[in-house]
Simulated assay, not measured.
Amino acid sequence: MDLDAYVAAHQHEWNRLRVLVRRRRLSGEDADELLDLYQRVATHLSQIRSGAPDPMVVQMLSGLVADARTKATGVRTASWAGVGQFFAVQLPGMLYRTRAWWLSTLVVNVLLAFAIGIWVDRHPGVQTSFVPADQLQNLVQHEFSGYYSQYAAQDFAAHVWTNNAWIAAVCIATGVLGLPVIYLLWMNTLNVGVMGGIMSAHGRSAEFFGLILPHGMLELTAVFVAAGVGLRLCWTWIEPGPRRRADALAEEVRSSVVVVLGLVLVLLVSGVIEAFVTPSGLPTWARIGIGAAAEVGFLAYVFVIGRRAVLSGQSSDVADIDRAAAAPVAA
Rank of each mutant, 00 (worst) to 15 (best):
A330Y: 00
L268S: 10
P53H: 15
A248V: 08
A152C: 00
L282N: 11
V65Y: 03
V83T: 13
A331M: 07
E207N: 12
Y301P: 05
R40G: 07
A42R: 15
L233C: 02
G178L: 09
G289L: 12
A31C: 05
G281W: 12
M199A: 02
A78P: 13
F224A: 02
R122Y: 11
L231G: 02
V58E: 06
V264Q: 07
R287P: 03
P132V: 07
I198F: 03
V170M: 11
L231N: 04
E251I: 11
A222S: 14
A201C: 07
F87I: 08
G193S: 11
W14N: 03
G216R: 01
R308H: 14
L3D: 12
M195E: 01
S104Q: 11
R254Q: 13
Y6H: 00
Y301H: 11
P53Y: 15
R254T: 11
Y96A: 10
V277P: 04
Q127T: 01
M56I: 10
S200C: 01
G291E: 03
W166S: 08
V89W: 04
R244M: 06
T77E: 14
A88S: 14
H142C: 03
E295N: 08
S205T: 05
L249D: 05
V65L: 06
R97L: 14
L265C: 04
L95R: 01
L37A: 12
Y38P: 00
A72M: 09
S79N: 04
V126P: 01
V176M: 06
G271I: 04
I182F: 13
H10E: 10
R97P: 08
F298R: 12
D121P: 03
A169C: 11
V126E: 02
T98D: 15
S200D: 06
P328Y: 00
V176N: 06
A226F: 09
T128A: 01
E252G: 12
M60H: 07
P92R: 03
G228I: 01
A8D: 14
A326Q: 11
V272R: 02
D32G: 11
R76E: 13
V57C: 07
L35P: 00
L261I: 14
L311A: 15
I182R: 06
W80I: 14
L268Y: 15
A88E: 10
I305N: 09
L64D: 01
H12S: 08
L311M: 15
V83E: 09
G193E: 01
M94T: 08
I238S: 14
E13G: 00
L267G: 06
V310W: 07
A42P: 08
V194F: 01
P132A: 07
